[in-house]
Design a protein around this nucleic acid. Sequence first.
DNA 1: GGGCTGACAGATATTGAAATCTGTCATCCC
DNA 2: GGGATGACAGATTTCAATATCTGTCAGCCC
Lengths: 202, 202
Amino acid sequence: MAEALTGEAILVATEEVLRRYGPAKATVVDVAKALGVSHGSVYRHFPTKAALREAVTRRWLDAIHVEMESVLDPDATAGDNLRAWLQHLFDRKRLSHSDEPELFATYKVLVSESSIIPDYHLGHLVGQIARIVQAGVDTREFVTDDVQTTAQAVWDATQVFHHPAHAQEWGNPHIQDAFDAVVSLVVDGLRYNRIPSATGDA
Amino acid sequence: MAEALTGEAILVATEEVLRRYGPAKATVVDVAKALGVSHGSVYRHFPTKAALREAVTRRWLDAIHVEMESVLDPDATAGDNLRAWLQHLFDRKRLSHSDEPELFATYKVLVSESSIIPDYHLGHLVGQIARIVQAGVDTREFVTDDVQTTAQAVWDATQVFHHPAHAQEWGNPHIQDAFDAVVSLVVDGLRYNRIPSATGDA
DNA sequence: GGGCTGACAGATATTGAAATCTGTCATCCC
DNA sequence: GGGATGACAGATTTCAATATCTGTCAGCCC
């Protein structure tokens, strides 16, 4: 007999169908056709079309989460780590938007379709920022009385450079300067009342 | 004879029609009907429907610009002025969004329709921020080597609290906390290397 | 004379019938 | 038995015919 139909195979096929037809045109029937099965079989593995799309989105976001983890350098200062982390996220989104605009638009739609996916994604990334901020507080490089709130503030302050609603601004030739200015402002804010070269308290 | 048809009267009628029918349904014929004239007469005062809408939008934005000017207090510190200015802009947008969601959506569409209006609006508001930052630099409360870039960075860092794409987040019960955290981070960044109570250089 | 009108052409939007899609389930086949 | 199938009902989308709108302009009327 042929290969057993797995959830994994369905996800791969769904990704391909989404990539080819876009989020508006991709149907469950298309996915089944690509797999050479009836669409009823797809519904044995995923309860609804929305659940199927959500699973594809989660896979994609998880890959980003893993990639972002790898940016952190345990030997670097918290300021450098934060800057590199934000730069990497920005570069990734910007390249994706400029090189594969249709795929970028597809995932933008997929993420906005779900009510839980954005919280999942944001929670994870803000958690990574919180770890960087906490490391900075531990080495007395940063000052804050609430790491979680501060991490969220860092995320909020840099929205222009990762929220897809601002993607059209990423083509601006001076966007890197704007990024540097915001990140410098934010990192300086975290270092409030500290001389960069000093390690002691004020 | 009846009152002469003025550009001003047309703008008022257009605002009313936009408010009643929304941006998708409001037509030049509707405006002419509201004024009791033929739509050909409207075209004597505005060359295109787009120009008419743009004039309405500009009037609305100019009112915001004037209102924001009035928030500045020449006797307050730059930090307090910046915080109050950002808070006022945020409150205004948030109230507009929650109290008159349809009108808010209408103006969101109008602004995004034009290619020059967003630049006009942003340029003006960032200019006001630049004046606050410059005042802070003059009193040695703030430190920056490029007021214009820094003002733009302040604007960019607070996009979540004024860009309409983020309006849905404004209903979050903790949004004021998030606002305070970002503004504190930004103001602290502007004060980098300074003790709040000190006035001298480092 | 100078602003206003209303008929007009091309562009855009609306509508409703037809086609397709989603999700279910009785049935089939290995 | 357990997974796959395909016909089906209701919901959604497509498409083409129809209606409306935009922008122009020759002529009208105060």
